[in-house]
Lab assay of single mutants.
Amino acid sequence: TIDDAFRAIERAIQAENEGRYREALKHFLDGGEMIVTAAEKEASQKVRNLLLHKGKEVLEWAEHLAEWILE
């Protein structure tokens, strides 16, 4: 659900702030994927587009974090 997705993102932010970057990455990926999944089930085109945009933002952040971890 969207609530689960945002809880995962909150955990990711907390982990990132505490320097637990790999854990943060996992939570960002989980949250982003949950948002995209919820968007695919959404009946309203406007809400679907907003959710897809937010999911994409979260997944892009996860990608940047992963690249930073690997440096």
Rank of each mutant, 00 (worst) to 15 (best):
T1L: 15
T1Q: 11
T1A: 10
T1N: 05
I2V: 09
I2A: 04
D3E: 13
D3M: 14
D4Y: 07
D4V: 08
F6I: 09
F6S: 03
A8D: 03
I9V: 05
I9N: 00
E10F: 12
E10H: 07
R11V: 08
R11K: 12
A12S: 02
I13L: 07
A15F: 11
N17Q: 09
E18T: 06
E18H: 07
E18S: 07
G19R: 04
G19L: 05
R20C: 09
R20M: 06
R22G: 08
E23Y: 03
E23C: 06
L25T: 01
L25Y: 09
L25I: 12
L25G: 00
L25F: 04
K26F: 08
H27Q: 07
H27T: 02
F28K: 00
L29I: 08
L29S: 03
L29D: 02
L29F: 05
D30S: 12
G31P: 02
G31Q: 05
G32T: 08
G32E: 09
G32W: 14
G32N: 09
G32M: 13
E33T: 13
E33N: 14
M34S: 02
M34C: 05
I35C: 07
I35K: 01
I35A: 04
V36W: 09
V36C: 13
V36P: 01
V36H: 07
T37L: 14
T37E: 10
A38T: 06
A39W: 08
A39C: 11
E40H: 13
K41D: 06
E42T: 09
A43P: 13
S44V: 14
Q45A: 13
Q45E: 15
K46W: 13
K46G: 11
R48W: 10
R48C: 13
R48M: 10
N49I: 11
L50R: 10
L50T: 09
L51A: 01
L51P: 00
L51R: 00
L52R: 04
L52M: 10
G55Q: 04
K56L: 09
K56D: 03
E57W: 11
E57H: 10
V58R: 00
L59K: 06
E60L: 12
E60C: 11
E60H: 12
E60A: 10
W61G: 02
A62P: 01
A62T: 02
H64L: 14
H64Y: 08
H64K: 14
H64D: 06
L65D: 04
L65W: 04
A66V: 07
A66S: 08
A66Y: 13
A66T: 05
A66F: 11
E67P: 01
W68S: 04
I69C: 11
I69D: 02
I69T: 01
L70I: 09
E71I: 10
